Simulated scan of single mutants.
Amino acid sequence: MSKRRDKSNAIPEKDSATPSQAMQVSGRLDQTRDRVLEIASRLFLLEGYGPVTVERVAREARVSKTTVYKFVRSKEQLFEISVALKANRRVVDDPLVVHDDDDLQPAFEKLGRNIVAVMTDPETLSLTRNVIAESSRFPQLAEAFHRASVTQFGRTRLIKWLEKLRADGRLQIDDASTAASQFLGMVRDAAMPRLLLGLSVKPRDLDRNAVAAADAFLKIYRPQCLQKSEKHV
């Protein structure tokens, strides 16, 4: 007696699949990929890079190790993609760059506060500490984290905004990339070392530093004619 093959869950062959069936297969793969990356992100965040294995991620996602390797080439790439997706969501939910057509002072103050909110996020700090702890053994991990970090995404958007402000004549900037690094540094450097060490920083001090950074940045890069005219408003 021949065995009957259950085709209810089989993936249709490429040549025989209808467009509808192909879309269903693609949708299932997308859902599986999203689940794998979500679980990988959670494990990396909670346990650091070293202890997490591809086998562990596959087991918790209830898929095979082979399935995970359909989406990524290595554990390092799994880390980079999961961190990048998290950073993308954070930037979309809480944009690092704001736009104000009337006065740049409140716009840059809000930008500074947004940067503070990102750098004080407990998950971001935990992941950063984990990467620092593993960077000597896995230098490529630190590079991947740097490329995928929410700060790097925000810096790219900030550069584009500064270039627009320069084109509009509202800021006098020779190098938007350098100016972006300067502003981020003024906001971050006063508190980040303490935060990474797990030391407390008072919220009012963080806010005061964000305002001071905005003021100092605009004194450097806002055209003198605009600074003088705003003093008389």
Rank of each mutant, 00 (worst) to 15 (best):
R208L: 12
S229D: 05
L206Y: 10
A213V: 03
K202D: 13
D207S: 14
R222L: 07
I220W: 04
A213S: 13
E230T: 15
C225F: 15
E230Q: 13
R208Y: 03
A216R: 07
I220T: 13
R204W: 13
F217I: 08
Y221C: 05
N209H: 02
D207P: 02
A213K: 02
P223H: 05
Y221H: 00
A214Q: 07
K202F: 08
F217S: 02
D207W: 07
F217V: 09
R208N: 06
V211R: 06
K219I: 05
L206C: 09
F217G: 02
Q224I: 06
A213I: 03
H232K: 10
P203C: 02
L226N: 10
L218A: 02
D207Q: 15
L218S: 05
P223S: 06
R208K: 09
L206I: 08
C225K: 14
Q224A: 14
L218T: 05
D205K: 09
D215P: 09
L218H: 01
K228Y: 11
H232N: 11
L218K: 01
A213Y: 06
H232Q: 11
Q224D: 12
Y221E: 02
P223Q: 00
K219H: 09
Q227S: 10
R222W: 00
V201I: 15
V211Q: 05
V201F: 11
R208F: 07
P203G: 06
N209I: 02
R208H: 06
P203S: 07
Q227L: 15
K228N: 14
V201L: 10
A216V: 02
L226Q: 13
C225L: 13
V211A: 06
V233A: 12
L206Q: 07
A213P: 03
K231R: 13
C225H: 14
D205S: 11
A210Q: 04
N209F: 08
V233R: 13
